[in-house]
Amino acid sequence: MLLQLNHIYKWVKQGGKRVFLLNDISLQVEEGEFISIMGPSGSGKSTLLNVIGMLDEFQEGEYNFLDESVHTLKEKHRSKLYKEYIGFVFQAYHLIDELTVYENIETPLLYKNVKSSERKALVADMLDRFNIVGKKDLFPSQLSGGQQQLVGIARALIAKPKLILADEPTGNLNSKQGEEIMQLFKELNQEGVTIIQATHSEANAEYGNRIIHLLDGSKTKA
């Protein structure tokens, strides 16, 4: 088992009342799964992904990741954990504008203190794999949306994560680009990477082998 959420609650206070962002969410994810989280805007998809990715905190419940209890860990350990095992892909790509394609992909390795020669090899492999070798010296603004997302995925994969968290990865793309990206996720999943994606789209959700529906912070059907 890769991770397990037990009765997770997350809320914010508004006018003295609790507004639940996540309401009693329990979830088990096995290695190798491809899970789609569906739901309308504001249903808590992103919040759930952020909690799983340890980017955001929750108020109640337990979260175990690879037998570590995340809710008891200090910030430093948590960041070490997700740095090691989790890769993120965003709807808005979130590439760093000042860095070239090559450097964007390289950045996670820098933060993991990987040696220079090794970094070169790993980034070169990745560029090769996504057929973007020719674009390695371009800046994000010089790429199309699809290409930017490709770089975003390459960057998420570079540290060889066990889990990819994708928050509406095709949300800013046209349907053809979107389809290519989903195809890519499918291939990655077949290679053994666990993927959890949040999406609006019924079609994209079908790529997953399990779909979780959210509404107002609660799971609606299993």
Partner: peptide
């Protein structure tokens, strides 16, 4: 701020 967020997600420690 966004860049900082991205860097943090990619594992940047505060020090760096």
């Amino acid at each position: 701020l966004r860049e900082i967020g991205v860097r943090k997600v990619m594992g940047a420690p505060r020090k760096s």
